[in-house]
Amino acid sequence: MACAEVERLANEIAVRESMVFLEGAAYTGPGPGVRTESRGLLMFDYLTDVRGERIVVVQVSWFG
Rank of each mutant, 00 (worst) to 15 (best):
45 D>C: 10
62 W>H: 12
29 G>Q: 15
48 T>Y: 13
45 D>F: 11
25 A>E: 01
18 S>L: 01
33 G>Y: 12
7 E>W: 12
55 I>D: 06
32 P>H: 15
35 R>M: 15
5 E>R: 12
9 L>T: 02
27 Y>S: 09
30 P>K: 15
1 M>W: 06
57 V>C: 03
20 V>H: 05
47 L>N: 14
14 A>D: 03
27 Y>E: 07
16 R>D: 12
53 E>R: 07
52 G>E: 02
17 E>W: 02
16 R>L: 07
35 R>K: 14
19 M>I: 02
58 V>R: 14
62 W>G: 08
17 E>C: 02
44 F>S: 02
18 S>E: 00
29 G>D: 12
10 A>G: 09
8 R>C: 08
41 L>D: 12
12 E>A: 03
61 S>N: 05
27 Y>I: 06
55 I>K: 08
18 S>Y: 01
52 G>K: 11
52 G>W: 05
44 F>Q: 01
47 L>V: 11
17 E>F: 10
23 E>S: 04
60 V>D: 02
44 F>E: 02
10 A>R: 12
10 A>C: 03
33 G>F: 12
61 S>M: 07
31 G>L: 14
49 D>N: 13
22 L>Q: 06
39 R>Q: 14
59 Q>M: 13
17 E>T: 04
38 S>V: 01
14 A>T: 10
58 V>H: 07
36 T>Y: 00
19 M>R: 06
1 M>I: 03
16 R>C: 08
17 E>D: 08
46 Y>H: 13
8 R>S: 11
9 L>A: 07
35 R>Y: 13
53 E>T: 01
26 A>F: 09
59 Q>I: 08
5 E>V: 12
15 V>H: 04
3 C>M: 05
38 S>P: 05
48 T>S: 14
27 Y>M: 10
9 L>V: 08
42 L>T: 04
56 V>P: 02
13 I>C: 09
15 V>G: 07
28 T>D: 01
29 G>W: 13
8 R>A: 14
21 F>A: 04
56 V>Q: 10
